[in-house]
Design a protein around this nucleic acid. Structure first.
Length: 553
RNA sequence: GCGCCCGUAGCUCAGUUGGAUAGAGCAACGGUUUUCUAAACCGUUGGCCGGCCGUUCGAAUCGGCCCGGGCGCACCA
């Protein structure tokens, strides 16, 4: 019996018990804060008190009585005892035998423990697209992009684990002002190296990487572009954009993030889909002409004001491309679209949500996840995000300093929509206050014990596991599927990071008071099975976050 | 001015479809090792959940009004 069906059947049992008393209220079952209050608790009795006009404690008694016959079938072996506590809570305690069965489930399913087969069937036809990073190819990735990359990739992993068909996409902004300035910057640097007169563009990119690229151009092209040959400007735009995109791609790859699709804005426009989309919106009546410009009637869907889509001079605004792009996403078969945006775009959300609805898709088909910025620190010292010269701390620098694993974990360990303090010193530390280290160390410790032995945990007797520390780990293992599921539902990976920290804590505490390998062969086998399961789940969780699970540290 | 996000221990944060005594980690102080990794564990101290009012059996959680911090309000991308 999987834990999800246990909870479901318990809820059903409670609902029918409630109905037999004459009240129809939704039953909520949740883990109480305090362990002495059991593994699940429900407040139905209090809810029913309103309807039935009877004291909640009395109702709770009746409910438990009505539950008894149902507990006989199947649930009986899962529930150890039921307690009623004032002002009317009903607390359920899981039996040890259920926990022991959970352990067996983990060992059978191994890295697939927590993948819900029922949900899998329903969801495999739900194509989800997660679009993230999508940084303009004008320079190396910043720390902010790094967080988006870590969050997006982990989220995609989690959704995939929960049964969705997931596509990772990067929207390449390969045209427009910025690319033009970028090309001109490269040209200027190129001419500079050749010792020719040059004009550094206003708002040009001052980073050292442009000089490196120019050097490269000098090597491959020689003085070919010294004169203003036709196509020079285009060549430099192409060269700069392409080279930087490649830098970004490589950087993400080293960060453990790879995209299924790199979608080019230029291709989108050239294919004519942008014009199609505009035409489509006109037909639907959500585009109107005023003062020479075309406006999207976004106020029809809750936006503050309508938005210009095509300027009076005929040039489309940025949102025109975005509308077309999102329409293409839906036409490509995605039924759920997830976009990760930085906080600088948050004012843009209402109009995009409006645009999706104007296109005829449901409001909740588009989910925009705000990824807040982070502050880099060394201990208490804040590191400035950029210097006057336009240099900023890059993702690559952070990765090189603290390593991929620590960076990936730190970026997702807080709620995505809240500001993150990233302490580089802490991330490097091999000490328990560093959460990545602490979790990986638990994994390595287990691997260490297992490596020393050849004992196969053949048909162990798990009922020997009854110490509080053992039961605690078993309870935690059982929570894994619902912890991941909650993250998928909320589009929020930090729950996995927290879960792993808790599981690691449970293990370290166990390790400190009990020995796995003892003279008692039966107990040794049972405990080996237990730590095997913990290792499996730690590895599975770390994998979701893109963090490695070392066997030795 | 309008809109969005945030305010929980000294610090960094969980907890917010309303539930029981508000939880971790760090920092501070004090302990634990002839035993599978002490790179670990245990204990103590620490709170008017920004404030006030309301909704109700019950509010960190929901609503209103303040205070404080961040951000967004283009025929830019």
């Amino acid at each position: 019996m999987s834990n999800i069906s246990l909870e479901t059947s318990l809820i059903q049992a409670l609902e029918s018990a409630a109905a037999s008393l004459g009240g129809n209220v939704p039953v909520i079952l949740e883990p109480p804060r305090i362990q002495t209050h059991g593994d699940f608790a429900t407040n139905v009795a209090m809810q029913l008190a309103k309807v039935l006009h009877r004291p909640p404690m009395e109702i709770a008694q009746s409910l438990v009585k009505a539950l008894e016959p149902q507990l006989k079938n199947g649930l009986a072996s899962a529930i150890e005892k039921i307690e009623i506590k004032p002002p009317g809570f009903i607390n359920f305690f899981l039996s040890q035998s259920l926990l022991h069965r959970t352990l067996q489930e983990v060992l059978t399913a191994r890295e697939n423990f927590g993948r819900n087969s029922m949900a899998q069937k329903i969801r495999e036809n739900t194509k989800v697209q997660v679009e993230f990073v999508s940084a303009n190819p004008t320079g190396p990735l910043s720390v902010a992009h790094g967080r988006q990359a870590a969050v997006g990739d982990s989220l995609a992993n989690i959704l995939n684990f929960c049964g969705y068909g997931v596509t990772r996409e990067y929207y390449v902004n390969d045209e427009g002002n910025q690319i033009e300035v970028l090309g001109n910057t490269l040209l200027a640097r190129y001419l500079e190296i050749l010792g020719l007169p040059f004009e550094f563009p206003e708002n040009g990119y001052k980073g050292g990487y442009m000089k490196a690229l120019a050097q490269e151009a000098v090597q491959t092209e020689g003085r070919r572009w010294a004169e203003g040959l036709p196509g020079r400007k285009e060549w430099f735009m192409e060269k700069a954009g392409g080279a930087i995109l490649e830098i970004i791609r490589k950087e993400l790859e080293d960060f453990g993030v790879s995209f299924d699709v790199w979608y080019s804005q230029r291709c989108l426009r050239e294919s004519g889909t942008q014009d199609d989309a505009m035409e489509f919106l006109k037909q639907r009546g959500y585009l109107y002409l005023q003062e020479g410009a075309w406006w999207l009637k976004s106020t029809a869907f809750g936006d503050d004001k309508d938005r210009v889509v095509v300027r009076s001079d005929g040039r489309p605004t940025y949102i025109a491309a975005d509308i077309a792009y999102h329409r293409e996403k839906f036409r490509r078969g995605f039924t759920k679209i997830v976009n990760l945006w930085g906080p600088d775009h948050h004012g843009y959300i209402p109009r995009m949500v409006a645009a999706v609805q104007a296109l005829g898709y449901p409001r909740d088909a588009l989910k925009i996840v705000m990824v807040q910025l982070c502050t880099l620190k060394r201990g208490n010292e804040i590191i400035p995000m950029s210097t006057r010269e336009g240099e900023f701390i890059t993702l690559r620098q952070v990765m090189e300093e603290v390593g991929k694993d620590a960076a990936r974990y730190f970026f997702v360990m807080r709620r995505t929509d809240s500001h993150l303090d990233f302490d580089l010193e802490l991330a490097k530390k091999a000490a328990p206050e560093n959460p990545v280290f602490y979790i990986q160390y638990a994994h390595a410790r287990i691997a260490g014990i297992r490596a020393k032995l050849n004992v196969q945990a053949m048909r162990p007797n798990f009922s020997l596991l009854s110490q509080p520390e053992e039961l605690q780990m078993l309870r935690r293992l059982r929570e894994f599927p619902s912890a991941v599921e909650a993250c998928a539902e909320q589009f929020e990976p930090h729950g996995v990071a927290r879960y792993l920290l808790e599981l690691a804590t449970d293990f370290h505490k166990f390790y400190d008071v009990h020995r796995v390998v003892t003279e008692d062969v039966e107990l040794t086998r049972a405990r080996l099975g237990l730590i095997d399961a913990v290792q499996i789940v730690l590895a599975a969780g770390l994998k979701l976050l893109g963090v490695s699970a070392p066997v030795k540290m």
